[in-house]
Amino acid sequence: MQPEPGANGTAVTEFILLGLVETPELRPAVFVLFLLAYLVTVGGNFSILAAILVEPKLHKPMYFFLGNLSVLDVGCITVTVPSMLAHLLSHKHTVPYAACLTQLFFFHQLAGVDCFLLTAMAYDRFLAICRPLTYSTRMSQTVQRTLVAVSWACAFSNALTHTVAISTLNFCGPNVINHFYCDLPQLFQLSCSSTQLNELLLFGVGFIMAGTPMALVVTSYAHVAAAVLRIRSSEGRKKAFSTCGSHLTVVCLFYGTGIFNYMRLGSAKLSDKDKAAEIFNTVINPMLNPIIYSLRNPDVQGALRWVLLGRRSLA
């Protein structure tokens, strides 16, 4: 899909990504750092997935969602980091128009599924703690698969909507993106068309895609907190909070960086602070998720020892 010619009779056919650093001397160090982060993220998330598959104790709804989340984390970082590493190795920092929109589509597809999946995990914790007697029927395998399928379908609609909307804009120069991948705020700034409708669409759809799931997460955990506080045993309260603490940490990191990234569209110029926030969203979060979910979970730790060391836990 090619952009229509702009007012001066020309059309941008490729964009120039400035990347993370413009100083050539820093590029080797940045390359090594992000290559290690990518390998750790992929290895960590696939280890979590393998642990869930091989350990019967982890064949539960919570870990079914966690396995899907691990696949999404690998997908999210793969959409952005390998292309950034390729640009650091070469002097060519250009990305074709079609490739830019493709990256935009897949990033919003995967991030959207992530958003809904975190909501499904909060619902799972709500049922497990507040509705234990009906948990097995309300969170059956059919329900789990339906929740994942609906998450993918909603995220696909969101990603397709934004990709089609951005393709209607004219880009007639400049074509330099002060970022390390293609995303909506940066493309809005480069368009020589009015982006008012696109920004309204982003806020409107964003409210549905992020606002509604976030409200459901808060509601679920409000009920969970009330139920946990009614538990008389301190050991029971500690166990209940530990199963929810990891998920709450991931939710706060995901929504915190996401809100910062997309609620600043009115700023005149996107700065290096936006790059730092995006690094957190696209690299740090996926890398931290396996650590967060395994840190205080003996079952996951035991399964990981089996996967990584070939030694099954005695517990």
Rank of each mutant, 00 (worst) to 15 (best):
L160M: 11
Q144K: 10
L147F: 05
C172I: 08
A155H: 03
W152A: 11
Q189C: 05
A165R: 13
A153L: 13
M139G: 00
T161D: 09
T137C: 09
P185G: 15
F180V: 07
T195P: 13
F188A: 07
Y181S: 00
L133H: 12
S151N: 08
F188Q: 12
T168D: 12
C172L: 04
S194E: 15
R138N: 14
Q141C: 06
F171I: 06
L147V: 13
M139E: 01
F188W: 08
T134R: 14
I177K: 03
F156Q: 01
V143N: 04
N158E: 02
S157Q: 07
L190W: 05
A165W: 04
S194D: 15
L197H: 10
R131C: 05
P174G: 07
S167G: 09
L190D: 04
N158W: 12
I166E: 02
S151L: 10
N170T: 15
C154N: 06
C130T: 12
P132D: 02
L197W: 05
Y181L: 06
A159G: 02
T161R: 00
S194M: 06
A155G: 08
F171H: 04
Y181M: 00
F188K: 08
N175A: 10
A165T: 14
C192V: 13
V150F: 01
D183Y: 09
L133A: 15
Q144Y: 03
C182W: 03
Q141R: 12
H179G: 14
T146W: 07
S191A: 15
G173T: 03
Q186H: 10
S193Y: 03
V176N: 08
I177Y: 01
P174D: 01
V143S: 05
Q196S: 15
T137E: 14
F188V: 10
T134A: 14
L169Y: 07
V148W: 11
V148E: 03
E199C: 00
Q196P: 02
A153M: 08
A153V: 10
L187A: 00
L169H: 11
F171R: 02
N178Q: 09
I177E: 00
S136W: 07
V150I: 15
S136P: 00
S167E: 14
C192S: 14
A153W: 06
Q141H: 08
I177N: 00
L147Y: 01
S157T: 08
T161P: 00
S151I: 12
M139A: 05
Y135P: 04
W152I: 03
V176D: 08
I129H: 01
V164S: 09
Q186S: 09
L197C: 06
S194W: 05
T137V: 13
I129P: 00
H179P: 00
A165Y: 11
C154T: 12
L190V: 03
S193V: 14
G173A: 05
C172M: 04
I129C: 01
N198H: 11
T168E: 14
L160Y: 11
C182I: 02
P185N: 10
S167W: 06
